[in-house]
């Protein structure tokens, strides 16, 4: 098992998407596609899915329970202060709960995003190639023992790659 990678460099979105399609139809595994902006066709072609929305939903439920729990504990159990004969477990908790659900969900979603992406201050870019954050697109294919490097190169070239390199 080598750690070699083939980079197919493109400068046009349409060529990129059509090449991804042909390569995938040939049964060759694409390890990554790099682009300077999100391309939805690429997500569809690579059949990428993310569970972040599901996670966010549960964070929201957690936020709801945690905030209500805290308000109930402080206002009813820990220090039940009577003011104006109003109920201690009041409806006005809704407002603090509403804001805190948003707060907790946003914070935890961001934390999840960075953990899943393994990104943070000081993280090194996993792929470096000039122009990938500017106007170039990359198809990255891992070279494994049974990969026919030449045919992959050929596929990339015929798809409109302006350059094919190995790293």
């Amino acid at each position: 098992m080598t750690n070699k990678k083939i980079f197919g460099v493109f400068d046009d979105e349409d060529n990129l998407v059509s090449t991804i399609r042909t390569i995938r139809d040939k049964g060759i595994k694409i390890s990554d596609v790099v682009s300077p902006y999100p391309i939805h066709e690429v997500f569809d072609e690579l059949k990428l899915k993310t569970k972040i929305p599901v996670a966010a939903f549960f964070y929201g439920i957690f936020g709801l329970l945690a905030t209500f729990g805290f308000l109930y504990w402080t206002s009813v159990i820990n220090y039940p202060l009577v003011f104006g004969g109003k109920p201690q477990n009041t409806l006005s908790f809704v407002i603090v709960i509403f804001i805190m659900v948003i707060n907790i969900t946003i914070v935890l979603t961001i934390v999840t995003f960075f953990l899943r992406e393994k990104k943070g201050p000081g993280a090194k870019p996993s792929i470096e190639y000039p122009g990938i954050t500017d106007d170039k697109y990359l198809i990255v294919i891992d070279v494994v023992s049974d990969t026919d490097v030449n045919s992959v190169n050929e596929l990339l070239k015929s798809g409109g790659a302006i350059e094919v390199t190995e790293q």
Binding site: D32, V33, V34, S35, P36, Y37, P38, I39, V42, F43, L46, L48, K49, T50, I52, P53, T109, I110, F113, F114, R116, E117, K119, G120, P121, G122, A123, K124, P125, S126, I127, I132, T133
Partner: peptide
Amino acid sequence: SFGWVGTARSWLRFETA
């Protein structure tokens, strides 16, 4: 920039988040 590259998976998560 937190080591951003712009792989398809990153972009998908980025947009979703």
